[in-house]
Design a protein around this nucleic acid. Structure first.
Lengths: 226, 226
DNA sequence: TTCATACTTCGATGGTAGTCGAAGCATAGA
DNA sequence: TCTATGCTTCGACTACCATCGAAGTATGAA
């Protein structure tokens, strides 16, 4: 007994509904202010403030001040991965907070997973990259092949700058709706940014859902055939 | 807001220290009685009973009655995977309940992860199987190759009976101490059982640690060279 | 300086959940 | 049948923590 890491600590951080709602909101990838997060969780600003300091102390969130605003975001990619993983587990057990609503199909189709694309589209992109041998599974982690490097450069992503960062370029992330992996890591982030910059897709304001335009959908399907 | 699965529910289940201790104890792979689990958590039997029904209602545990004993165990492999994953996250953030004690090195070397081998030895076995192309990474999941089938049959594991079950034969599980994958699934379980049946290793009674005998260690290293 | 906004800290409150004693079932054995 | 053991249920207690009002701090704008 008393072996190993302390899962009760993270569990209790996530276990409060208000905090869980804030974390879920932050999975949308935007940095949010305490006021916004309080609205998401349906609590007052004071209460939110208290929760946020706990989450920050626990290493789940980080904060940056900008003028009189404080922007909170997930502290690291790994926090997002862990949360998505938990959601997958919860979804597999039917632990849903709502009967599937009108937004649900949109979420399953394409959504933000912290900073990268998830849902049906995320999985399709990932599997298409694998099939084209532009990403390779090497033991535990993923590697971008030479063909892959050329490919992303052609799309306008600067490989050198991705490589400079200490973050892994490619990572898998388990998709809770599809129950399969999709692409995370700095490349995953760069690709989502690209789609949005090109105007193929845009984030919904108050949701994790991502809406593709008709032309964007076509361009995406051409890039990543099934 | 209010999107996606309810992570607060699982979070709160894991978030109580007593419950977390019980779950950790059950990661040892043995089915345990309420009395034993109460001792692990340092609480009375009544309290343990209440926790156990909550964990069962939440789908984390299952129960089987045998005479006047009730044996609790993790409900599915996925529960174990999820917990190991959480432990990895917690360990990465230095959330440890104890200063590394004398048992710690043994745990890192070889331990039970619910029903399969984890720790340094678990990872070595996994990577050795991959290197020998007896297991293949196919997109998201693992597959046993033809060479792998022959290999495990030679070891005395009945492939047909593994295949009959609905459980996946091979699965990856992220190791919290090594931060790399090891082998889970029914094959992972069968292999660990094999090592114990052959007398190469045995479980410690009150810990997740696994102790290899000298000859067992040699046999293991021969089977799975680095 | 003065006012407004954004947020934190303090203090008090209330509800919930973990805790255990006592009593109630169930099974096993004699 | 009686007794012992293993466990659950009930009820009461307590401690903790989420919650919010009120007051305090910081930044920006006028």
């Amino acid at each position: 007994m008393k072996e190993g890491p302390d899962i009760a600590l993270i569990g209790s951080l996530i276990g409060d509904p208000a905090r869980a709602n804030m974390l879920t909101a932050l999975m949308g990838g935007r940095a949010l202010t305490p006021t916004e997060l309080a609205a998401h969780a349906g609590i007052t600003l004071q209460t939110a403030s208290s929760h946020l300091s706990k989450l920050e102390a626990g290493g789940l969130l980080s904060q940056r001040k900008q003028g009189r605003h404080r922007y909170y975001q997930l502290a690291e990619d790994e926090v997002g991965l862990m949360l998505e993983n938990l959601m997958g587990f919860a979804a597999g057990r039917g632990m849903n907070r709502h009967r599937p609503g009108p937004k649900d199909p949109a979420l399953r189709k394409a959504r933000v997973c912290y900073n990268h694309l998830a849902g049906d589209y995320g999985v399709r992109m990932f599997e298409s990259l694998i099939a084209a041998k532009q990403i390779e599974v090497a033991g535990d982690d993923l590697a971008l092949t030479d063909a892959g490097q050329i490919r992303i450069e052609a799309l306008g992503i600067n490989y050198a700058s991705l490589k400079k960062s200490r973050r892994p370029i490619c990572r898998t992330c388990l998709d809770w709706s599809e129950r399969r992996s999709h692409l995370a890591g700095s490349l995953g982030e760069a690709l989502l940014t690209l789609f949005i910059d090109k105007g193929w897709a845009k984030r919904e304001t108050n949701s994790r859902a991502i809406r593709f335009t008709d032309s964007g959908e076509k361009a995406f399907s051409d890039l990543f055939p099934q």
